[in-house]
Lab assay of single mutants.
Amino acid sequence: TLEEDLKKLQLSEFFDIFEKEKVDKEALALCTDRDLQEIGIPLGPRKKILNYFSTRKNS
């Protein structure tokens, strides 16, 4: 689940933002850096999230 993935990244504090915006794993895989910025995710966590999901998509 998205919540489990965020826990792996030690970013579970952002789960509420994704839940509020109705972003699940499938939607997050389609998000850009700009999308994450617009919903209030800071730069460092955005980079970690985007890297994590891009490596999952390619495997």
Rank of each mutant, 00 (worst) to 15 (best):
S54I: 08
Q10T: 06
E4H: 05
E26S: 13
E3S: 07
K47G: 13
I41Y: 01
L6Q: 04
K22Y: 12
T32Y: 04
R46H: 02
D16K: 12
G40V: 01
S12D: 12
T55G: 11
I17V: 13
S12I: 11
G40N: 06
G40C: 02
F14K: 03
L2Y: 01
D16S: 10
K7A: 10
L2W: 02
A27S: 09
S59I: 13
L43D: 15
G44D: 14
L11M: 08
Q37M: 11
K48V: 14
K20W: 02
D24P: 02
R56T: 12
R34P: 06
N51E: 13
F14P: 02
R46P: 01
L43Y: 15
T32S: 10
K48Q: 14
N58R: 05
L2G: 02
F15A: 11
E3M: 11
V23I: 14
E4I: 03
L6M: 07
F15S: 12
L36C: 04
Q10G: 08
D33I: 01
K20P: 02
S59H: 10
L6F: 13
L43E: 15
S12G: 09
I41L: 12
E3F: 07
R34M: 14
E13K: 11
T32K: 12
Q10W: 00
R34E: 15
E3H: 04
D24F: 10
K48L: 11
L6V: 00
A27H: 14
I41T: 10
L50N: 03
F15M: 07
E4Y: 01
K47C: 13
K7Y: 11
P45K: 05
S59T: 09
L36K: 10
K48F: 03
Y52K: 05
G44W: 06
R34Q: 12
K57W: 02
N58Q: 06
D35N: 10
T32N: 07
D24M: 05
D24L: 00
L11V: 03
N51I: 00
T32W: 00
L36I: 03
Q37F: 11
L11Q: 00
E13H: 14
K22R: 07
I39S: 04
E4T: 02
Q37W: 04
E3I: 05
N58Y: 09
C31T: 13
D5K: 03
L36F: 01
A29H: 12
G40S: 04
I49S: 10
F18N: 07
T32I: 00
K22V: 03
T32H: 04
I41A: 03
I39L: 13
K7Q: 12
E26I: 07
K20Q: 05
C31Q: 08
F18W: 02
K7C: 05
T55C: 12
E21S: 15
S12F: 11
G44K: 13
K25C: 05
E13N: 00
D35C: 06
E19F: 09
L2C: 01
K7F: 10
S59V: 08
E19Q: 12
D5T: 13
S12T: 11
F18T: 01
F53H: 06
D33Y: 02
F14C: 06
D35A: 05
K57T: 08
I39G: 06
R56H: 07
K20F: 02
E4V: 01
L28F: 05
Y52Q: 13
L50Q: 04
K22M: 09
D5W: 12
L36V: 02
P45L: 02
E38H: 05
A29C: 06
T55E: 14
C31M: 15
L36Y: 01
D24I: 00
E19Y: 06
A27G: 14
R46Y: 00
K47W: 04
E3Y: 08
L43P: 15
V23Q: 05
N51Q: 13
E13C: 11
E13M: 08
L43S: 15
E3R: 06
E4M: 08
R56S: 10
E26W: 09
P45D: 11
K7G: 10
D24W: 00
E13R: 03
T1F: 01
L30Y: 13
F53A: 06
D16N: 10
I41W: 01
F15K: 12
L30K: 15
K25W: 05
N51C: 05
Q37E: 14
K48N: 04
S54K: 09
Q37N: 05
D33A: 09
N51T: 13
K25T: 05
T55L: 09
Q37K: 06
A29G: 07
K57Q: 09
I39T: 04
K57I: 09
R56N: 06
I39H: 04
G40I: 00
L50E: 06
N58T: 10
F18Q: 05
R34A: 14
A27Y: 15
T32D: 08
I49C: 05
D5M: 07
L6W: 03
L2A: 01
I39A: 07
I17T: 13
R56I: 09
R46I: 08
T55D: 10
Y52D: 09
T55V: 08
T1C: 07
L6D: 12
L50C: 07
G40L: 00
I49L: 09
E21M: 15
R46E: 07
R56V: 12
D5F: 11
L28E: 08
L50R: 06
D5I: 08
I49D: 08
L43F: 14
G44N: 12
I41N: 00
K20V: 03
R56A: 13
A29E: 11
I49K: 03
R34C: 11
A29N: 13
L30E: 15
Q10L: 02
F14M: 11
E4N: 04
F18C: 04
T1G: 13
L30G: 15
E19D: 13
E26M: 09
D5S: 11
T32F: 00
L2R: 01
K20T: 09
D5R: 02
A29L: 05
S54L: 05
T55N: 13
G44S: 13
E38F: 03
P45G: 08
E38G: 05
V23G: 03
E13L: 02
N51K: 12
F53I: 09
S59M: 10
E13Q: 07
L43A: 15
